[in-house]
Design a protein around this nucleic acid. Structure first.
Length: 394
DNA sequence: CATGGACCACCC
DNA sequence: GGTGGTCCAT
């Protein structure tokens, strides 16, 4: 494969499969661009960082990469792009190595379904945090559009040289861009619903409490799993499921297995897990705090030190095998409840099904939050925030 | 500490 | 009526 401008890196597709990894609900910002050069065009993946756009393509044994830089910046490739890639994809982690000790036949089957290549990304904790605050009661396609809106409305696009670049490339907005109280209303108008307040409050709290919020989030990587989780749970919109996702995907906690209704289904259907009031044949009851811990522990015990990575395989495999069956659909009711307030229409849809055969349907602000703006909040609001934030304090 | 609702917008 | 949760009140 000849790709002008791209640099080759030897990475077998069984170690990293972009198609499987970048669209399975870990990161929501990668975009596919169909490049029409020649005829044998492979999809190109792009992600906008704060100072460059990462571009990737791949074939069976090679990953091709390059970066697009803003006008006026030195784009001499000093190796930082390669360093970023190795870190982000955790290329030093050998999938064969960490999975070879897992005997679980169901896991093995899921792996063989794709021939590997599914790994956990090492994402930026801040972006990861906000993205998953958006994930509650939500599907991949809508989360994707919400995150996209976050970028286009709260950060400035990189000014690129390339003429073939049309749409704006906006980085993920930093904490201070989302901390102003006005952000709540803006996000609501963008269709974020009740998650709008969570995002603004979380950003606000982090900016108030930490000199450098992003650096502080990064420091969670060196803390113990329990300590890091405790910190994350203090933030509005972050419950046990979201916290576990962040721990696994951006805080170097590979043993953590996030349990959502999806994983609960898998546990029930394939691992004979039974909730308290669940008899055979009955529908799976709603997840409870206790059952979540039980299921998570079961998987952790079964899969070991990299249980979270194994979970990623089951999860992605599940999503994928549905997309393959493309029309199998299971649930789907319709609304009758009308809500008041501002409504902003949204489009897009996506359906995913499951391995087992059943399926689910898925698929100007920006000012620094200063003491002055803080005073803009009502007293009650501040007290509530304060109480929540100190809930776990000694 | 353990359950039910509400919560937004959107799917169907 | 349900969604790849969380918050709040019993």
């Amino acid at each position: 494969m000849l790709l002008p401008g791209f640099r080759p890196l030897h990475v077998p597709i069984v170690q990293l499969n972009l198609e499987l990894v970048l669209k399975c609900g870990q990161s929501f910002r990668w975009r596919v661009v169909q490049v029409v050069e020649n005829d044998l065009s492979s999809p190109e993946w792009r992600l906008t960082l704060h100072d460059r756009v990462i571009c990737l393509r791949q074939n069976s044994d090679t990953l091709f990469y390059r970066a697009l830089f803003p006008l006026g910046t030195h784009e001499l490739e000093d190796g930082s792009t390669l360093a970023w890639i190795r870190d982000y994809f955790q290329l030093d982690v050998d999938l064969d190595n960490i999975f070879s000790s897992i005997e679980d036949p169901i896991f093995k089957r899921a792996t063989s379904l794709f021939g590997g290549g599914i790994r956990i990304l090492r994402q930026d904790p801040w972006e990861n945090l906000i993205s998953f605050v958006c994930s509650s009661n939500n599907n991949i396609s809508r989360i994707t559009s919400m995150v996209q809106n976050l970028c286009t409305h709260f950060s400035s696009p990189l000014v690129l040289d390339s003429l073939n670049i049309v749409e704006p490339h906006c980085p993920f907005p930093p904490p201070h861009s989302l901390s102003n109280p006005s952000v709540d209303g803006i996000l609501r108008n963008l269709g974020f619903g009740y998650r709008a307040k969570y995002i603004q409050q979380t950003a606000s709290i982090l900016c108030q409490v930490h000199e450098d919020p992003q650096q502080w989030l990064l420091s969670l990587r060196t803390k113990s799993t329990d300590e890091a989780r405790e910190e994350l749970l203090k933030l509005p919109g972050v419950g046990p499921k979201v916290a576990d996702c962040i721990l696994l995907m951006s805080c170097d906690k590979p043993e953590v297995v996030p349990i959502d209704t999806h994983m609960l289904q898998i546990a029930t259907k394939h691992y004979n897990f039974r909730l308290p009031g669940n008899l055979k044949g009955k529908a799976v009851p709603a997840i409870t705090p206790k059952s979540r811990d039980e299921v998570s522990l079961m998987f952790q015990k079964k899969w070991g030190a990299h249980a979270g990575w194994a979970h990623g395989v089951l999860f992605a495999a599940d999503l994928k095998s549905l997309a393959a069956h493309g029309g199998i659909r299971t649930s789907s009711p319709s609304p009758s409840r009308v809500s008041r307030g501002v409504d902003v229409p949204k489009k897009e849809r996506e359906t995913v099904s499951r391995i087992s055969g059943s399926s689910i349907s898925s698929s100007p602000p920006g000012e620094l939050y200063t003491d002055e703006t803080v005073r803009g909040d009502s007293l009650a609001e501040r007290i509530k925030l304060r109480r929540r934030y100190s809930r776990f304090k000694p």
